[in-house]
Simulated scan of single mutants.
Amino acid sequence: MQARDLMTEAVETVHEDDDVSDVLQQLARRDFTGFPVVDDDNRLVGVVTQRDFVELFQPKDHTVWIPIGLPPFLETLDYGIDLSWNELETELDLAKNAGKPVKKIMTRDVLTVGPDASVDDVLAILAADECDVNRVPVVEDDVVVGIVTRQDVLRALRDERNA
């Protein structure tokens, strides 16, 4: 079994210059959690996922670290307090980032496979703890020709066992 046997060929992509707000709206209307990002020549240049938007609208600087040292302790302990962000902050973040191109927030180092890659190659990416990806773009000459999701692999393995 190869990637071409598992992949979905009709892949929805976004352009690297698309506005963050437009891509966020597109993502909200879909049943999946990210898009491959392409350039003017339709070559894969990155991916943008829900995680990228969460990091954009929930910056890490909302946590305040307070050193506390009380006798008889010789070392201080750091306690993190999350200063929860509210709707106003979210709206301000959206307004501030709405005009940015998606290339500013996308992940550039994308793990891909070719159409002839084995199911084991795809599984190695999807199951790797350090990667934490849900989909693998299938590329040929840097152009996205398909995408394989975790669900695609599980479905194919189930069907093969049932056959």
Rank of each mutant, 00 (worst) to 15 (best):
L6G: 04
V11F: 02
E12M: 11
E12S: 09
E16V: 10
D17V: 05
D17E: 13
D19C: 12
V20N: 11
D22E: 13
V23G: 02
V23Q: 05
Q26D: 13
Q26L: 15
A28R: 11
A28W: 10
R30A: 14
D31F: 08
F32A: 14
F32L: 12
F32G: 11
G34W: 08
V37H: 01
V37L: 03
V37W: 02
D40L: 04
R43G: 07
L44F: 02
V45A: 00
T49Y: 04
R51Q: 11
F53W: 05
F53G: 11
V54A: 05
E55G: 08
E55N: 14
L56T: 13
Q58A: 13
Q58G: 06
Q58I: 11
D61A: 01
D61C: 00
V64E: 09
V64K: 07
V64A: 08
W65R: 09
P67K: 05
G69C: 13
P71K: 08
P72Q: 06
E75Q: 08
E75T: 07
E75V: 05
E75Y: 04
T76L: 11
D78T: 14
Y79M: 10
Y79D: 03
W85Q: 15
L88N: 08
T90R: 14
E91N: 12
D93R: 14
N97A: 15
G99T: 01
G99A: 04
G99K: 05
G99R: 06
K103H: 08
K103C: 08
M106Y: 02
L111M: 11
V113T: 06
G114S: 10
G114F: 01
P115E: 09
V119S: 09
V122F: 00
L123V: 06
A124K: 12
L126W: 01
A127Q: 10
A128P: 03
A128E: 03
D129S: 03
V133D: 03
N134Q: 14
N134F: 10
V138M: 03
V139P: 03
E140F: 02
D141G: 04
D142F: 00
V144N: 04
V148W: 07
Q151M: 11
D152R: 01
R155G: 05
R158T: 08
R158E: 09
D159P: 04
D159W: 08
D159V: 00
R161M: 15
A163Y: 13
